[in-house]
Structure formats: structure tokens, C-alpha cells
Design a protein around this nucleic acid. Structure first.
Lengths: 230, 230
DNA sequence: ACAAGTATGTTGGAAATACAACAATCATAC
DNA sequence: GTATGATTGTTGTATTTCCAACATACTTGT
């Protein structure tokens, strides 16, 4: 089985995406027919969404890879994100009519994209309300998830020093794990990149904190110490 | 006219809130009846939502003021946000069942709060689908707006130096204004707080950039220079 | 076991930032 | 007009961070 109007996309693929998660292959044809997505192919380096545009559609990568790029006043380009098959993009702008894109979406390689009009998602139709609800729920969940991730990262980054950034991050990981002992999903370089600090300086700071008795670690395993150590 | 079950809240107030924006006073009774919010009063310093809880409701402040507070592993408290009447909170968590609150909500003064179950918002009922759609649209828009604001701030903060942070911010303001000449909504201290840098160091850097011919400014008015100056 | 590559820790000098303190300018109220 | 307070710019010093370079593990494939 394949999605209406695009024989390259299988329902098996779609039902696993963040957008269609929770729907069955049996329901998908009705839902797809109802939200009437459009399909477009892009060549490598072709621009999918232009900075300054006012979009009303949510994009989903079906194959290939899409990069979100920001260009500043002086023309400096900056890669913001990589979007892989099954992931959506433009959802923050699509539901805010009048909000102009501050970024561009570019096909990093030959890519196929599904575009769903935001109004089609919200609009009620008699035949598929149940599926609509699921769709809206999914997109709200995606937005909420992104929100939490951004808020968390920002709460670490708003700390002034490397030490404070580390403590904020490690404290959060510990509370999330519900234990003073936990593993982090990063190696040192990735953690430094995430916290926007220098790796060697961060490594240095970690060791100082260890020597001061605030924590211990081994590779990606950490343990925070609550006792006051002198 | 007042909202069902809570004589202190007027429909005139509600229809202006981010949640109910776009509905008329005539529609509100039906919608309110359908989503069945609960109303609660909190004394000053009373905890509305506890860190670690799994919430399914979105909160809206009706009167008073609510603070979002984060407590880290060592018990250090950190104020994340102030929520004023008409503003909502908890919306990122309410739509993610199983996601435990990493923050607490505390009444900063005696406050009245409306709590709306997330499922009631998404759920379709025969009588008020049109209003439901509006509600979902509003909450999606709120989430999307927050998302954009967070993404923007993060894109500035992820820059390593004060100068780069400033350029990122000012470039964004210029592009948003659609002009090289624009006003920013901050004074120096507020801008420094927003970018998480020292005010005097930032002020210093701004003047250096001005002396190097990259920009000019007067109070909160800025002008970026695209010409290459030697 | 060995080699090659990766990850982590360590160091020293250069550069940037924070901090404190103060000067100059602007805004406001009286 | 003057006094008061707030905002902005300036400077010097202490501290922190960055950067580059290297040492030491640890991993992986052969």
C-alpha cells in the first residue's frame, strides 16, 4: 500500500512518523485523503522554504535530508538543524499566519517532501474527526517536546560559567533519572557542544569539581554528591 | 456574564486571553461547558504544581500572579518565569502524558487559576466542534510562538563571544524590521540579561563595534552597516 | 598482540569576560 | 532650575575561557 498520489511512500513508513503515529494502516488512506497533502521532489541544494516567506504548511521529509539554514544581515550562513526522513519541519511557522520565516529549508541531498496545509489539519470533516484529533494531538506533542528540550537547554546555557552550566545540566540529568547516579547520552565533545563551551576547559572544570568532592564520574556515568565537603 | 461555576471571571476577560482568543462572548458558555474547567484559589506561596508531578491540565491565571520555579539537585531555587492574568502555564507538559514536571508553579500572591484538562481540549463533542478547533488552534499558536522565541534566543546564546551574541541579536532584529535601521525593545541592562552577558562588557563591545564602523546606535535605536569598513 | 583511531585529561599562554568602581549623560519630579 | 535617580559609557584588575598542543588512556579491527 502506498500513500495517495505518491507511490514511493508506504503507509508502513507513515504510521511510524511523528505526525501519523497512533494511526493504523487501515485509517491512513482516509486521513491522507482528507488532509490532502502535496508531494514534491527537490534536487540537491534546491531551496524548499525561503527565508522571509509566510508558510501555512508543515513539511515532512519522506526521503533524503533537509537542512534548516539561517542567513544573517551580513550573509553569513548557519546550519540550525538536520531533518531526517519521518521528521517534520516548519510546524512552528505554519500555525502562525503572518509570521515570516527567519530560516530557509534546503535539500541537503535529493529529497522527497510531503507538505500538509495547517488548516487541513485543524479543520473538522465529518468522515475522519477521530483521525484529525490524533493528528492534532501528535503535532501538539511534537511542539511541546521541542519546547521542553529548548527550555532545558536554555536553562543550562543561561548560566554564566562553565561550572554552573555543568551543574545545571548534571542536576537536571540526575533529577530526570531520579537518582544521584546516572548516565548521560553524550561524550565530552558532544556535551561541550551542547553547552556551547570549550571541550578542554570543560574537561578541566569537571576534574576540578571532582577534586573538590562535588561529584565523581567514569566515562559517561556520573554521581553527584549532596554532602558538603571541605 | 460570568464563567460557569466561577462568578469572579467575566467572559469579557476570557475572550481576550490567549486560550479563548477568537471566540465571542456568546460562544463562550457552550465552550466552557464543554471543556469543563475547574477553578481553584491559591494563597500566597501555595504550590499549584509540584516538580515531579505528571500533569494533564493546562493552567490559566485569572487573577494574581504565578511563578514558575526550578529547584536543582542541591536545592537551589531559580525563577524561570512570571505568569500574569490571562497567560497559560503547563501547556508543554499537559500534552505529554508521562513527562514529569521539572519545575513547580507557585502562587506569588493570592491567585485564582483555571485548569483545563488537555483531553477535553482535543476531544470532539458534537455541540462545539467549531470552538474546539479554535481552542486547539490557539494553544498550538501559543506553543509555536514560544518555540520561535526560544529558538531565537538560543541561536543568539549559542554564540561563544559577546560580540557574536550581539551581532546575532541585532541581525535578527534588523531582518525582522526589514531595515538596517531599527529599535530594540530593551535597555542595555535588559539586553545584557537577555543575552546572559555582563552589561559593562557588552556596552564596551558595542562601542568597539561602533568604532570599527560595523554599526551606529543612539539609545535603543541601531543601524547596521553592510559596507566593509577598514 | 598489535596498530590505528578515538576519547579524555593536562598544560601554558593568549584573549575575552566578569566585576567593581566611577564618570557622564539623560529623565523625572519637585 | 535643581536635585535625584536611572541609564550608559569607561577603565583597570582579577578571573575565566579559549586555543593549541600533547600525554594517556581506551576501542576497534585485523
Amino acid at each position: 500500500m502506498s500513500a495517495q498520489g505518491n507511490p514511493q511512500v508506504s503507509y508502513a513508513f507513515l504510521k511510524k512518523t511523528s505526525l501519523f503515529r497512533g494511526t493504523t494502516e487501515a485509517e491512513l488512506p482516509t486521513l491522507i485523503g482528507c488532509i490532502a497533502p502535496s508531494y514534491r521532489d527537490f534536487a540537491k541544494n534546491e531551496i524548499i522554504l525561503h527565508q522571509g516567506e509566510d508558510i501555512t504548511s508543515v513539511g515532512m521529509v519522506l526521503s533524503g535530508r533537509v537542512q534548516i539554514i539561517e542567513e544573517d544581515f551580513w550573509g553569513n550562513r548557519n546550519i540550525i538543524a538536520d531533518i531526517w526522513p519521518g521528521d517534520i519541519f516548519g510546524e512552528s511557522y505554519a500555525f502562525l499566519p503572518g509570521e515570516l520565516l527567519r530560516v530557509s529549508a534546503v535539500a541537503d541531498e535529493a529529497s522527497a517532501v510531503m507538505l500538509v496545509d495547517a488548516r487541513h489539519m485543524l479543520e473538522i470533516c465529518s468522515s475522519a474527526c477521530r483521525f484529525h484529533t490524533r493528528l492534532v494531538q501528535n503535532i501538539l506533542a511534537e511542539s511541546a517536546k521541542k519546547n521542553l528540550a529548548l527550555t532545558r537547554k536554555l536553562s543550562h546555557m543561561s548560566k554564566r560559567s562553565t561550572r554552573e552550566k555543568l551543574l545545571s545540566y548534571l542536576s537536571g540529568q540526575s533529577l530526570a533519572a531520579g537518582s544521584d547516579l546516572f548516565k548521560i547520552p553524550f561524550n565530552r565533545q558532544q556535551l561541550a557542544d551542547y553547552l556551547c563551551v570549550d571541550r578542554s576547559a570543560m574537561s578541566n572544570e569537571l576534574c576540578k569539581m571532582r577534586d573538590e568532592g562535588m561529584l565523581t564520574f567514569d566515562k559517561s556515568s556520573f554521581q553527584l554528591k549532596s554532602e558538603i565537603v571541605i
